[in-house]
């Protein structure tokens, strides 16, 4: 913040405080990774040491991957999060465009409805959705994991706010050039909204990859487990204290997002900040 530099003492103090915080923040990740490398005897040793003395990683990871079909769960997670995001975009973008740039009767009512829906936490409507899916027979299918999230009022709200800033002239020019309304949404609005779309994508993927509450309700068959369900299952049905394989499984489950985060750190932080502030 401006040219004023910290004094040497303040700089050391800053590092001291922040490093302490870093230990607390990263500690669990380090312990997880290190424990996943340790053989059982070492994990339960009376004296704690961070680094493994002997290698038990191979066995832990093999156990984690074979005792439950962990890779299959990861695939489920990928399918579900991708399907949710794709459908959200397909539904949201045209609606957001209409709300931002079209004049029609009922627009204000529709936007007010979106704002009201924004207040509904999904946990609150899980029960009727469960009953609905139960009675229509789609409980315990991929569809049951995806469908409730195909509508994201948050996404509509976010994209509308972004679209408001797109100049009307650009849309009129596209109309003069003979583009249909759908072409305008996908050919003109979507490209200009890329930053917002990416931010929303990160928000959506992170939220649904990590979600536990709804899959727990909607799904019973193991073939449909998402990663969080998989690891909870492993904890409850493995020997609950087999921490070696459990830490290996935890490492595997968080790795995709953490890797993506480390590669595109700035985008992730921007995305979460942006969606956090606007939502």
């Amino acid at each position: 913040m401006s040219g004023v530099r910290l004094s040497p003492v303040a700089r050391v103090l800053r590092h001291l405080v922040l490093m302490t915080g870093t230990v607390a923040m990263l500690g669990p990740f380090v312990v997880m990774l290190m424990t996943s490398f340790k053989p059982k005897a070492e994990i339960f040793a009376p004296k704690f040491h961070l680094l493994p003395h002997s290698w038990g990683g191979t066995e832990n990871y093999i156990t984690a991957l074979t005792q439950v079909p962990l890779l299959h769960f990861l695939l489920n997670g990928a399918i579900v999060t991708a399907a949710i995001f794709l459908l959200q975009v397909l539904v949201n973008m045209p609606a957001a465009y209409a709300l931002a740039k079209r004049r029609f009767r009922g627009r204000d009512t529709m936007f007010a409805t979106v704002l009201v829906c924004l207040l509904i936490p999904y946990q609150a409507i899980a029960l009727p959705l469960y009953i609905l899916f139960f009675s229509t027979g789609i409980l315990d299918t991929y569809a049951s994991l995806v469908l409730p999230f195909t509508i994201s009022v948050f996404g509509i709200f976010l994209m509308r706010q972004f679209f408001l800033g797109v100049p009307d002239d650009l849309i009129d020019a596209a109309r003069v050039d003979g583009m249909s309304e759908y072409r305008i949404v996908w050919g003109v609005m979507a490209p200009t909204a890329m930053p917002a779309l990416i931010a929303f994508g990160i928000f959506s993927v992170v939220a649904h990859w990590n979600d536990y509450f709804w899959p727990l309700i909607a799904v019973a068959s193991q073939e449909l487990y998402t990663p969080p369900m998989g690891i909870a299952f492993l904890k409850q049905n493995g020997e609950g204290t087999a921490y070696g394989p459990l830490m290996a499984a935890a490492t595997i489950v968080i790795t995709p997002l953490v890797l993506a985060f480390l590669v595109a750190q700035r985008r992730f932080i921007e995305g979460i900040t942006f969606t956090g502030l606007k939502g």
């Binding site: 915080g21 870093t22 923040m25 990263l26 669990p28 990740f29 312990v31 997880m32 992170v206 990859w209 990590n210 536990y212 990663p227 969080p228 690891i231 909870a232 904890k235 459990l246 830490m247 499984a249 935890a250 489950v253 968080i254 997002l257 953490v258 985060f261 992730f268 932080i269 979460i272």
Partner: peptide, 16 residues
């Protein structure tokens, strides 16, 4: 570092 816990699957980290 401080942001990593926000990203990580809470269920997995709870077990840790």
């Amino acid at each position: 570092s401080y942001f990593l816990p926000v990203m990580a699957t809470l269920i997995a980290m709870a077990i840790v």
